[in-house]
Design a binder for these strands. Structure first.
Lengths: 134, 134
DNA sequence: CTTGAACCTCTAGTCGCTAGAGGAATTATG
DNA sequence: CATAATTCCTCTAGCGACTAGAGGTTCAAG
């Protein structure tokens, strides 16, 4: 059996975060010592690793809850969650690329030469000249 | 003079959000009516538009606070904020692209054929086979 | 058996809003 | 000018996903 600190060390998830996951029903300790300290099995450790990785992939705790509750033979549902998230990520990438383009425009608005009016602030406020979409 | 609702309508920022911006010191109403309602000048409207646009660009309220407090003749500082944010966005894009690649790998791990074990859940938990970096 | 590290629960704070209660002011219509 | 509809006011509480700290207990090593 592992202590909460060992789980933390093994997965890189901080101790208070592990307790938080328990609070929201994502990961419960299999046992407690006589002195009320949490003890986890290997399965608990693996589950935390899974949660950690899914979090790194940007999934919400809600999505992860759905994932761990899933019947592993249910292909359709699993695919759906993964693909929903994938298209979500693609949308975010697209959005960020538009922001990137606009910030480039803004930075380019000022050449930094001395004795010259800096247009960056103006460009920041100027929605009209931006690409569109937000 | 504009009411808070007019500002909201003109900029697309919701009324409670405008009040929130006042609370955190980003935008104060120039005046109040006898009945205590907020009134804004044209300058207030423009400032809210600026905030809105900067928010859309993904800047934090802290960064915006720094931006509006800036001496407009101070090129260096303005450039620095804009470029810090730009490299920030680029880092986020890079990160999302790696997530995208990994999710593609995960979705591809299962061909969806009947009577076959779905590997998606496994792939989600399997950090070792992912590109690296997170 | 003592020390010190790790653990416990609980509350409150972070960011950027959003929602709702309960009431007052303003504006439009009859 | 009265009433009704709309907008406005303040205040509190909630969201997600943690993080920080207080104050106290238990565990493992020497």
């Amino acid at each position: 059996m592992f202590s909460i600190g060992e789980l933390s060390h093994a997965t890189g998830v901080k101790v208070p975060t592990i307790r938080y996951y328990e609070e929201v029903g994502l990961l419960e300790a299999e046992a407690r010592t006589a002195g009320n300290q949490r003890r986890y099995s290997r399965a608990g450790l693996d589950r935390l690793g899974f949660i950690r990785h899914a979090r790194d992939l940007g999934l919400s705790l809600d999505a992860i809850r759905a994932l761990v509750a899933l019947d592993p033979t249910n292909h359709d549902q699993t695919h759906e969650i993964a693909e929903t998230h994938l298209s979500d990520i693609r949308a975010r990438i697209g959005r960020l690329r538009r922001l990137e383009a606009e910030l480039e425009r803004i930075v380019a608005a000022c050449d930094g030469g001395p004795g010259h009016e800096c247009n960056i602030l103006e460009a920041f406020g100027d929605h009209d000249s931006c690409a569109h979409d937000h």
